[in-house]
């Protein structure tokens, strides 16, 4: 009985809720445009902030630029075109993803070159070591010292 009562109450509440509740409207109607604005503003830097993306910044300029991006997105411009538009005005500084060009080759490929170099160096080193090197993990002298110290610890 109690259960039925509760179910009925819940249903009534839901009905009431449905009568009262309005769908929250998206802030901007065009979902695809908004997704593009979001995607772009997450990769672009707010110029007046210390170090924030356009998406995260509350500064006025960031707001204006987001609006500008929105206007361009509505016009149907591509990500590349919109980014270019901003780079023309503010320089590469606005891009958190630095463009690939002569001055950034090292930035983009440096880590992987380093990884490759490290890997090769490691392999050569391991091979050389496997052939030579002393066979005892600790030298006799060292082992004696360790034991002496361990005995002393108290």
């Amino acid at each position: 009985m109690k259960l039925i009562f509760r179910v009925v109450t819940v249903c009534c509440l839901m009905l009431i809720a449905n009568v009262w509740a309005d769908e929250a409207r998206p802030l901007h109607d065009d979902v695809a445009v908004e997704a593009q604005v979001r995607r772009l503003s997450e990769e672009l830097r707010c110029l007046v902030c210390q170090n924030q993306t356009l998406a995260d910044s509350h500064s006025e300029l960031a707001e204006d630029l987001r609006q500008e991006i929105r206007v361009m997105a509505i016009k149907g411009m591509s990500d590349q075109q919109i980014t270019d538009y901003l780079v023309e005005r503010y320089g590469d500084f606005v891009r958190y993803r630095p463009p690939l060009k002569s001055t950034t080759l090292l930035l983009w490929f440096g880590p992987f070159a380093l990884l490759l170099g490290g890997g090769i160096g490691l392999f050569l080193m391991l091979r050389r070591r496997a052939k030579s090197a002393e066979n005892s993990p600790l030298s006799a002298d060292e082992a004696r010292k360790v034991n002496a110290l361990l005995n002393k610890e108290s």
């Binding site: 110029l47 007046v48 300029l61 204006d64 630029l65 500008e68 005005r89 503010y90 320089g91």
Partner: peptide, 13 residues
């Protein structure tokens, strides 16, 4: 008034 020309000139500060 709305800062549009400012954006064209790359004004940020």
């Amino acid at each position: 008034e709305n800062g549009r020309v400012g954006i064209d000139y790359g004004v940020y500060g």
